[in-house]
Nucleic acid binder design. Structure first.
Length: 550
RNA sequence: CGGGGUGUAGCUCAGCUUGGUAGAGCGCUCGGUUCGGGACCGAGAGGUUCGCAGGUUCAAAUCCUGUCGCCCCGACCA
């Protein structure tokens, strides 16, 4: 592409590709002489007569010869293909997913491959959740992917909510099935059915089960991790004897979600109850954690549902209580998907690519040796350093011979490694190491002997710093609105959360959405006494967070 | 579901207006020199022939018709 007009480069190259037998009458001969570097292959054919082109010339833009760009230089710049984050978040996000080798598009629309690097992050995240689930008495199990239609439709509201996005299996073994099978969009149905079988007595309660699984929801618009046809998640399903116990479970899991989001992913979230419009289909009430993305949209990062006795009735899950009465159980469900990984990418990344919190970085430290001719001690020194650091961190030694050190710096930045240690001859001679941190992109030199301790401290510092930075950013983009005018103005600005007193009327929420595109994300407790709804003016019942959402 | 874009080498794309039988950069392979912010030199391989199917033509990546896929932006969802 021409450095000036961004359009004519190739066209002009082509114009130059004439052979001597039918010279280009329209091209001044002088053009050929300013070319040099771009070589047309001998096989290249003449534009006008298809004979072989004997001359070689360079790809300079004919209309802007003064700004001639060497094609190799221009191509080199293309290596950096991610746009500035602030310029185009959507494109930035896609490119980071692709280029940091987190995800790649699969043959089916809306499906992605989670590549090893992303899977490694996912494993670290799931381990954090899983540990906490088990610590609170939950067990893992696995339920089938396929759900008979007759089973799925038992809970009316639930079905209605999911119907548009269910994928169906209608054939198997070369024969049409007598009853089609849903590929689970979520597992309340099968699990409810099995619970009915397993639960007889109050002594069987509570049932506290979680499953790590994939589900399918036939979405129309998809994006890597944030919304894909198939996604990985965790769904907890519990059954309790009393409503109070179920309610406590829902709050407990919501708190675990908040804790992992903030303490592990460094992703500040607000948690609270969902409005009637936004709650899970079939739930009594839904609670969620919501993170704010750089474009001002909210991302639902985890949900915890009080299902009441709705599913117990639909799937006939009953037990005999201590008072010898047969009662329906109270169920809950709660889930976090790989979407949270998308939130993580967007929240912390910068113009150089991904930025990973140390807690879930597959490589917390990458050691890059900088070889120099005649300095045979550099690589062994790097190896020794990496081995030593492995005692206290996840360390990767990048000793590939085929890439240069600067190339590696860029690559590991793109892939978000929190700490990079550079070790060259200068460092070895001076008995120091050069440490670069990903979050601030700053470098420091520390004595070799103190490297381990410094890096341990640095990892903690980065983890805390990322959360603090994200939280400050979120808070700066959270606006409180009390009256109609400021409420509308704030929502239309689309900067972030708008906190306002709200009447909790579903119709009011729909009208807000129609006018601004925003909805309630969570409801935080009651409103101040005497406050009126910031939108419709009716008496306010609650304080709600509004935003547009992913 | 509406709007836009796009399909040519592993990747990013030219070539199409004005039909003549496949190009560039990057990447890859081999050899060598390199390495403190995306190194360089030399030699090579790589397209079942341009998403697919028809049509026009002596001749189609290019023109016509149809069709499919994918991406992005909006209405619905973790």
């Amino acid at each position: 592409m021409c450095g000036s007009c961004c359009f004519n480069r190739v066209r002009s190259i082509r114009r130059l590709a004439f052979c001597t037998i039918s010279p280009p009458s329209t091209i001044p001969p002088a053009i050929g002489s300013i070319c040099g570097g771009y070589r047309r292959k001998a096989r290249a054919s003449c534009s006008s007569c298809a004979r072989q082109t004997p001359d070689a010339c360079e790809g300079f833009c004919r209309t802007h010869p003064e700004n001639a760009v060497n094609m190799k230089e221009a191509a080199k710049k293309e290596v950096q293909r991610i746009p500035p984050k602030a310029a185009d978040l959507s494109e930035w996000y896609t490119q980071v997913c692709l280029q940091a080798q987190l995800a790649d598009y699969a043959p089916v629309r809306g499906c992605i491959v989670m590549r090893p690097y992303a899977y490694a992050i996912w494993e670290l995240i799931t381990a954090e959740f899983d540990r906490r689930f088990k610590a609170t008495g939950h067990q893992n199990a696995y339920f089938p992917l396929l759900i008979p239609e007759s089973l799925l439709v038992r809970e009316a509201e639930h079905v209605e909510g999911f119907a548009p996005e269910v994928a169906w299996v209608t054939e198997g073994g070369g024969e049409r099935l007598t009853e089609r099978l849903a590929i689970r969009p979520t597992s309340e149905a099968v699990i409810g059915m099995m619970y009915a079988k397993w639960i007889q007595s109050h002594r069987d309660l509570p049932v506290l089960i979680n499953q790590w699984a994939n589900v399918v929801r036939w979405e129309k618009a998809t994006r890597p991790f944030l919304r894909t046809l198939e996604f990985l998640w965790q769904e907890g399903h519990t059954a309790h004897a009393t409503r109070e116990e179920a309610a406590a479970e829902v709050q407990q899991m919501l708190e675990i979600y908040r804790e992992v989001a903030e303490d592990v992913l460094a992703l500040p979230v607000i948690s609270g109850r969902k409005s009637e419009n936004e709650k899970f289909a079939g739930a009594l009430s839904t609670y969620a954690i919501e993170a704010l993305m750089p474009d001002g949209k909210a991302l639902q990062a985890g949900t915890s549902h009080e299902l009441g006795q709705n599913f117990a009735r639909a799937y006939d899950i009953t037990f005999t209580d201590v008072d010898e009465q047969t009662k329906h159980v109270w169920t809950t469900s709660w889930g976090v998907s790989w979407r949270i990984l998308g939130g993580l990418i967007m929240a912390h990344g910068d113009d150089n690519g991904l930025v990973l919190p140390p807690a879930i970085a597959p490589h917390q430290v990458v050691v890059v040796p900088i070889p120099r001719k005649g300095a045979d001690d550099v690589l062994p020194a790097a190896r020794a350093l990496a081995d030593e650091l492995r005692g206290s961190a996840r360390v990767h030694l990048d000793d590939r011979a085929e890439q240069t050190a600067p190339w590696k710096f860029n690559e590991w930045e793109l892939r978000g490694v929190p700490v990079r240690v550079e070790l060259g001859k200068r460092d070895v001679d001076a008995q120091v190491v050069t440490i670069a941190r990903r979050d601030t992109l700053s470098r420091e030199t520390v004595p070799r002997a103190e490297a381990g301790a410094r890096i341990t401290a640095l990892l903690a510092e980065i983890q805390a710093g990322l959360l603090a930075r994200a939280r400050a950013d979120r808070d700066a983009r959270t606006i409180v609105a009390r009256d109609h005018a400021s409420f509308l103005a704030a929502l239309r600005a689309q900067q972030g959360f708008v906190v306002a007193p709200w009447c909790e009327d579903a119709a009011c929420e729909l009208e807000i959405k129609a006018q601004t595109g925003a909805v309630t994300r969570v409801i935080k407790g009651g409103a101040e006494s005497g406050a009126s709804c910031a939108f419709c003016g009716k008496p306010a019942k609650v304080t709600a967070y509004f935003a547009r959402s992913y």
